[in-house]
Amino acid sequence: MTDSAHMVLMVATVLFGLGLIGVLTRKNVVFMLISVEIMLNAAGLAFVAAGSKWQQPDGQVMFLFILAMAAAEVSVGLALVLQIYHQHKTMDVEDLKELRD
């Protein structure tokens, strides 16, 4: 188990980076939401790893909060996706530019 915490954090970093790439490259709103889930998950992994390293429960508590937040976020986000699709008939974020200057 040498360097285990480092390895876990590195895995979390890689997952976060992959999620970020997904958010940046995808145009489809659903895929962007999936990528955001990956990033949140990676953050939770980092919290749990840190908690284990310091032998404190706080890391896992934080993971629980992230979990709840992710659940709330994904429900609202998917509701928005539904509305966007109904109103604009598209999933392309590049077309959703009503708030531009």
Binding site: L24, K27, V93, L96, K97, E98, R100, D101
Partner: peptide, 8 residues
């Protein structure tokens, strides 16, 4: 110009 509505 930067506020072009493009989320990405």
């Amino acid at each position: 110009v930067s506020q072009n509505g493009s989320l990405r």
